[in-house]
Nucleic acid binder design. Sequence first.
DNA 1: AATTAAGTACCGACCAGTTGGTATGTTGTC
DNA 2: GACAACATACCAACTGGTCGGTACTTAATT
Lengths: 206, 206
Amino acid sequence: MSNTTRSKPNKPDARAKLLDAAFSLIRAKGYCATSVDDLCREAGVTKGAFFHHFKSKEELGVAAANHWSEMTGIFFATAPYHDHQDPLERVLGYLDFRRAILQGEVREFTCLVGTMVQETYDTAPAIRAACEASISGHAAKIEADIAEALARAGMKPDWSAKSLALHSQAVLQGAFILAKANGGAEIAGESIDHLKRYICLLFNRS
Amino acid sequence: MSNTTRSKPNKPDARAKLLDAAFSLIRAKGYCATSVDDLCREAGVTKGAFFHHFKSKEELGVAAANHWSEMTGIFFATAPYHDHQDPLERVLGYLDFRRAILQGEVREFTCLVGTMVQETYDTAPAIRAACEASISGHAAKIEADIAEALARAGMKPDWSAKSLALHSQAVLQGAFILAKANGGAEIAGESIDHLKRYICLLFNRS
DNA sequence: AATTAAGTACCGACCAGTTGGTATGTTGTC
DNA sequence: GACAACATACCAACTGGTCGGTACTTAATT
């Protein structure tokens, strides 16, 4: 005990606070509209601290995307839908879960990397790559369950598990855009319902 | 005849050129990263011209979204899929058409208002509203065909024509995000395939 | 045990360039 | 000669980024 402040591995308080500020500001205003000063103000640190931890704003963007991958990875890995032993139920449970977390303000349930990649795909290759890795990394986990469900059902359709997993991410990302345009989560929820219905139809369930 | 340049209603050359510049720049870099100077440079006009036609950058954003609604309205209204007398075939033809126009660079086939609303939904209410009108206006046209297909098939499902029309827009918008992240149109095309397959399953077709 | 050296984390003044926006023209057309 | 459609010069505020300095911890040297 004794050391409330960890000796070696971390304690870079400012860095964590900046990443946190990046999550909320970029999700609300976008990457470009979020200035370095905004981030420092929100995080309660100075510009010196910012450029000590990130050598440019772009590097913070990359770090934010990577941190997002980590956080969401943990978040979904510990979600209850993994309990089902039937892989199809896990996929459906995943969608129920995603629908259930459409709570609160729009900026609180939308996707950081989906927002960021829209602005940066043509101008900041490093950010684009980090966002791509985040999305496809998440999709790969769903793909595994879909592939298992396919094998268990003895199905060999003309679509791949990967394309369906990516399609599910497209639906979610698109649902977020409609929610932003509309100002509410309702539309997003109904879109997830359609996706769930589609998967049920594909697997002849219920 | 005689007046190639319309007498009253338009001919504001600079305005049209600025709107044109807005289309290509905002689709490539986003709304915030596109500066007024950028727009003037691309359009080949001066700042004076810009602020003569638009009293602020936000007003240009609104005008661009409205112009986008007009242009895409005409573009889709004159597309060949309207020839089908069967409403379901029109819906499916619409999706084939949307898949077919995924050509060239990503910035050339993605959606202006979908891109813009992500950045502005929380900071520029007027732009958000214009983007919302654009998306839901377009969706309403598809909704009409879906409703007609539903009536013709004598179906009364537990989902509405409106929600399916909006879902199709969510899929398209999400497909654009994946295309931006991935750098290619392939993923987007496959997502549209999934949507088409879904609608076929819903209507028990082929 | 005291001193030194080095490294990390952070501060805040400062910088040149850019931002959206304005004020004051000029020019061509009805 | 009034008015729309531009052009040019200019502005304060802000942009991302730099830089010299400080406080603190750790390891090596004395």
